[in-house]
Design a protein around this nucleic acid. Structure first.
Lengths: 67, 67
DNA sequence: TGACAATATACCCGATAAGGTATAAAATTG
DNA sequence: CAATTTTATACCTTATCGGGTATATTGTCA
């Protein structure tokens, strides 16, 4: 499974949203959305879940070596 | 899928480790391990992944309504 | 039941994430 | 290519997480 940042980026684009539109709709800061999509690892899990919730998802344990 | 805190707790116990032993082996603070297992949501993803890595796992997007 | 181990909760401090703003780079569109 | 939109990077301030320590609660076992 792709990492979370890539997942958000793909799905956001598929939804036809800019980072800014997505940030507003998700109730997140634009800077956070940028950082997340850039693969920043030291983000807070609640914010990550808030972003994932836009697509009916959340952070769960998955195999580390999965594609 | 269970939430991450519950996953860590279960697997840690299955491995016969106390929170303290697990914290030391994972290179994490005891307080963090406690908070994570208690379901604290505002934890940092890098630390969460550090904990999951002990079981060959990492945080990935998963369906929010999965059991 | 008492003693001990393990886990949970509270307080404090230093380090840092989040977010705003500004600027630069890249992508898109005509 | 130029103009515009979108995304990326940098600086600053505020809020708060991580971790240590201490204490309380819970669980286990003789």
């Amino acid at each position: 499974m792709k990492n979370i940042g890539a997942f958000i980026k793909e799905n956001r684009k598929a939804a036809g949203l800019t980072q800014e539109e997505f940030a507003v709709r998700a109730g997140l800061g634009l800077r956070f959305v940028r950082d997340l999509e850039q693969g920043k690892e030291t983000v807070r899990m609640d914010k990550v879940n808030q972003a994932l919730a836009m697509f009916g998802m959340k952070a769960v344990p998955g195999k580390a070596d999965d594609e």
